[in-house]
């Protein structure tokens, strides 16, 4: 157990060290910056609540990425699902102002999830049925999704009188309500439920079992009669649905509209979370909280000091760089991973 824990702390320490050196070279006091980050993310009960709420989309994206990783598809296309899910939720929420509260929240969440799942059909078809490279395909599809969302907003959903491309603010009834504590909204509960479901799905669900076998050895799975294509497509669509739900939760809980720059590279942070957490439910949850601290402090740190927001972005990026490093021989496995899954 301690061995497994230390193999996860290694990349975190390495990332922090590398980022602090670079921050120091840029002329900022790295220790002071780090303390400021901690203070703006965990300094007050309200800040802690906000960090927990912001962790929710990351948890969901980490789970979505984890589902694909387990089945051996290197899916980096969740950024697209996140963005389109967020847009679908924001647009649907705009039409839900007259519904009673539970339905007014449920419908946009469903819409986001469906949008993410539908969008994932494109890369799923290309990767599973046409044998295109998964990394290149999902990356390209991401950019198409971002441009498509921008066009949809400009063409159909532009808020009246808005200068940049943004949809109208969603009605108050569709905002995710606070649960028990001001600032801690429903998204946190949703993410905890999903983590629990994911843990059960991995160990007890049929598809969870099938994806594990397919991801472990695709040729073996085919030889023993698993419907590999069906399993891979189901896993990708499920992953897209959860990615879309993440976007919806982000739209209803935090941003309250869809606007350019809606996703601050959340898709890639979800990737990091899945890798840091080794596709396991508890790991994904803890890694999300860690990255959420950086996401939250990015906004706060500029207000309380002259340290620019980019400093937190630097630390986020170095987490991604070091995420797959394992100082206990884990790295070799990850490096050979893709080759092991080659058809």
């Amino acid at each position: 157990m301690t061995g497994r824990l230390s193999s996860h702390l290694g990349p975190i320490a390495g990332a922090l060290l590398a980022a602090m050196v670079v921050i120091g070279l840029c002329g900022f006091n790295p220790f002071e910056s780090l303390i400021l980050i901690f203070r703006s993310a965990l300094g007050s009960p309200a800040a802690i609540a906000q960090t927990c709420s912001s962790a929710a989309p990351l948890v969901l994206l980490g789970l979505a990425t984890g589902i694909c990783f387990r089945s051996g598809v290197f899916n980096v296309g969740l950024e697209g699902c996140f963005v389109l899910g967020g847009l679908a939720a924001a647009v649907t929420a705009g039409h839900c102002s007259t519904l009673p509260a539970p339905l007014a929240i449920l419908f946009p969440l469903l819409a986001g999830s469906v949008a993410g799942s539908l969008w994932m059909l494109v890369p799923a078809w290309l990767v599973v049925f046409r044998n295109l490279d998964d990394v290149v395909t999902t990356l390209m599809v991401n950019f198409v999704a971002l441009d498509l969302a921008a066009w949809l907003v400009e063409r159909f959903f532009l808020a009246p009188g808005s200068a940049n491309s943004a949809t109208a603010m969603i009605p108050a009834v569709t905002h995710l309500p606070d649960v028990g504590f001001p600032g801690l909204n429903l998204s946190f509960i949703i993410s905890i439920i999903c983590v629990a479901f994911y843990a059960a799905w991995c160990s007890r669900g049929t598809l969870g079992y099938e994806t594990r076998i397919v991801g472990w050895n695709r040729r073996f799975a085919r030889a023993t009669g698993f419907g590999v294509r069906r399993i891979l497509v189901s896993a990708m669509l499920l992953s897209g649905g959860i990615g879309g739900l993440a976007g919806a939760v982000h739209a209803l809980g935090t941003v309250h509209q869809y606007v350019t720059g809606f996703s601050a590279e959340y898709g890639f942070l979800g990737l990091t979370v899945a890798i840091l957490g080794d596709n396991r439910a508890p790991g994904i949850f803890l890694a999300s909280l860690l990255l959420a601290m950086l996401v939250v402090s990015g906004i706060g740190i500029q207000l309380i000091s002259d340290v620019p927001e980019e400093v937190t972005r630097l630390i986020e990026a170095s987490f991604i760089i070091f995420a797959s490093v394992r100082f206990t021989g884990f790295g070799r496995r990850l490096r050979n991973w893709r080759e092991g899954n080659a058809r």
Binding site: F268, T272, I275, I321, S324, R326, R332, L334
Partner: peptide
């Protein structure tokens, strides 16, 4: 021994 794809994105 980091994963090249993730490291590249990072």
């Amino acid at each position: 021994g980091a994963n090249p794809i993730v490291t590249g994105l990072g």
